[in-house]
Simulated assay, not measured.
Amino acid sequence: MRFVGCVLVALLAAAAACGPRETRPSTPEGVRGPGSNISEAAPVDAPTARIDQQATLAAIQKAMNELDEAAQGCWAVAATERFDIEGELDAQIEIAPGRATATIIRDTARNKRLATCLVDLLGAYPWAPPLHGQAIQLPFKFRAPDGQNVIERPLVAWNGQGKVSVAVLLDENNSGNGAASMIELALQAGGSTGMRLAERAELWYFLGAATMNGRAVAAGDMVYVPAQTARDVVAASADVHAMIVMTPGGREGSARAGALPTREVGATKPAGGPIFLPASAAKRHMPVAIFAEPATTKSKLLAASIITLPANTTVAEHVHERETELLYMLAGAGTVTIAGIKQEVTATSVIQIPPNTKHTFTATADVCAVQLYTPAGPEQRFKAKP
């Protein structure tokens, strides 16, 4: 549930942009033209005034309809950091041919990313000629959902230090689910995480070749790092990205600031080490290739697979009683319905489904995704398929 409520109301039209539209009023109150009020035309000009008024109202209504969806996009940008954003923002827009200047004059949501996005949106919007030279006010109202299930990775902010950058894709702040956190790590060529202690269990999926603790890993490989295990990841000759799921999850404040959510241990490292799960060793039980499961990790904390679904495949509605499911889309597109809410997903989506929540998925294009469960368990049902 990415965006739950928005009301966009033009003062001159008093119409709601989310939900049923209200009847348009007959006079354009709240619209001010230079030197005169267009609702006070002289009787001799009444037909012209009515035409101008109708054109102005039509231009405002068109803008409201188009800005509704775009305002939802602004909420989605802000909600990559926290899902509980709600409140009202009033914007004043001074409109001139080819440009507009927007100012937030009231803000009860108090979210800088949301306000900045709305200002940029209103300034860049192609306002119709009937509104040129006028000033209008638009109130926006946002309502927070109970949680968030789908986030688009391109909207997520990156922060880093040196050759290491981090993007928090899913955590308790932006999803409402503390069972697991998902981050993406970017290492520039020649960069290293340093030897660090994983204080929580980690599952790494490598999107490029790297080394971990001196051992080569290829793009498409996974590595399970048990809690209290040290690991050092190096991008030797090329930039590397990796997706990391940590369980239990939480509020990843240090990662949002660009710091790795682990502590350095120097040259001395504890006993034990990561468990390498190359793609070539994954167990294939269509439609999945299982990498991490209790049989390979000796842990029931999580399971990880690559799932592939041909276009037009539908996964029937079902529930995982105790497990959280996470998906990191690699390719394709589809629709996911979670607790009755249908959402579009793309090759850059991440998805989280809490326990005991009904969900279904339909692939509208060939899908490939990393699929994780915490705790492990639901991945075993694929083995029973013929």
Rank of each mutant, 00 (worst) to 15 (best):
R2G: 14
V7H: 10
L8S: 12
A10W: 06
A10L: 11
L11K: 11
A14N: 13
A15G: 13
A16N: 13
A16D: 15
A17E: 11
E22I: 14
T23R: 15
P25K: 01
S26H: 12
S26G: 04
S26E: 12
E29K: 03
G30P: 05
V31T: 03
R32D: 05
G33L: 14
P34V: 10
S36V: 01
S39N: 10
A41N: 05
A41E: 03
P43G: 07
T48F: 13
I51A: 15
D52I: 00
Q54V: 00
A55Y: 00
A58D: 15
A59P: 03
A63H: 06
L67N: 05
D68F: 13
E88I: 07
A91T: 06
A91S: 07
P97W: 04
I104K: 07
R106F: 08
R106P: 04
A109H: 04
N111H: 13
N111R: 00
N111W: 03
N111S: 11
K112T: 15
L118M: 08
L121Q: 09
Y125C: 10
P129A: 03
L131K: 00
K141N: 13
A144F: 01
P145W: 05
V150L: 08
I151N: 03
I151C: 01
R153C: 09
R153H: 06
A157C: 01
A157N: 10
K163E: 14
L169N: 08
D171S: 07
N177H: 14
M182P: 03
E184W: 00
A189M: 07
L197D: 04
A198F: 08
E199D: 15
R200H: 10
L203G: 12
W204H: 14
F206H: 04
F206T: 03
L207M: 11
M212D: 00
N213L: 02
D221S: 05
V223M: 02
A227T: 00
T229I: 04
D232N: 15
V233Y: 01
A235D: 11
A236G: 01
D239P: 11
M246T: 12
G249D: 12
E252W: 07
G253C: 00
A257P: 01
G258N: 02
G258D: 08
L260K: 01
T262Y: 09
G272H: 09
P274S: 02
P274A: 03
A279S: 04
S280T: 02
A281S: 12
A282Q: 02
K283E: 13
P287M: 04
V288L: 06
I290D: 02
I290W: 02
A292I: 04
E293S: 05
A295N: 09
K300N: 14
A303F: 04
T314S: 13
H318V: 01
E321K: 14
A331T: 08
G340M: 02
I341W: 01
E344H: 12
V350Q: 06
Q352I: 14
T357C: 08
T357R: 07
A363G: 09
T364A: 06
A369L: 11
V370P: 03
L372P: 10
R381C: 11
F382E: 09
F382D: 05
F382R: 07
K383V: 13
K385F: 15
P386Y: 15
